[in-house]
Nucleic acid binder design. Sequence first.
DNA 1: TTTTGCATGGGAATCGTTCTGGTTTACACT
DNA 2: AGTGTAAACCAGAACGATTCCCATGCAAAA
Lengths: 156, 156
Amino acid sequence: MSDSTDLKRAGLKATLPRLKILGILEEPRARHMTAEDVYKALLDMGEEVGLATVYRVLTQFENAGLVIRHNFEGGRSVFEMNQGGHHDHVVCVECGEVFEFYDPAIEERQRRVAETLGFQVDSHSLYMYGVCLGMKREGKCSKTAAMGTRGAAEPE
Amino acid sequence: MSDSTDLKRAGLKATLPRLKILGILEEPRARHMTAEDVYKALLDMGEEVGLATVYRVLTQFENAGLVIRHNFEGGRSVFEMNQGGHHDHVVCVECGEVFEFYDPAIEERQRRVAETLGFQVDSHSLYMYGVCLGMKREGKCSKTAAMGTRGAAEPE
DNA sequence: TTTTGCATGGGAATCGTTCTGGTTTACACT
DNA sequence: AGTGTAAACCAGAACGATTCCCATGCAAAA
């Protein structure tokens, strides 16, 4: 219902596919999903939605600022809800887990660099790829580890 | 000739396609190229090289550490020679120009964040997208502007 | 409730990239 | 220089992700 007004505010009709997709992306455990992931989630819910529609809707959501698209290594896009606070990403190349962090100092330095170049920044992205703690320790991913939430890592 | 030994050192046979591709990437004005760009450059030179070969060779070069692959927005990969010094990128979404910069403070903070998470970082990339000075001022790109070289922007 | 036009679904098309299979080539060893 | 062999090549087919096409469906304005 609130979703419905979210869509209207973005200039989009509140259609069933759009509401369903928004609902899926809003689930807390669904932080980072590919279009395929969203499509499968819809099928699991028994919804008859075409893959083309999923892509179309996700792109519309991106343009409307509702979701953020990331181009991780490997060439496929992943999407996450835009919940306001900007953050950067750490991706485990072994287990695929994605951690988020925000570092004000990094943001500030980026701003400075752009200023120096006379560059007007629309968006920026910082990705680190590597192996997460769980993989290093036990050879399995640390999806259950007590980190990976926004703002969890703020050194100093 | 020196290219030939570069290849051997990387454990790759010094074949004509590889030498030609290396030669193209080494031209100073060819900083950031897609596989397609490289392919077209070869055709322009009158070389009979298949696109598949270009992709294969670029991937081999990447694995050998000779070139670096970037996943910019838009889903296509761009390649640049690995000239040793790590640097980050600023991309003008209007004219496509790519500027490079290096900020030790950002690097250090990244290292810290990874450490805090117990994450072993293999690679990292930082991209800023926006509009460059030339576009803002005159509506045309600033490819000829006196910046855009590595290390040009180091605030503070 | 009727109208109107944007949204949908499914399949085909497209894009960038990788694989396949048969042929050619670089290079170590005569 | 001559030759064997593994590696590299080419063209084209295959591939996965994404977008296009268009007849039909449906949200929302009248």
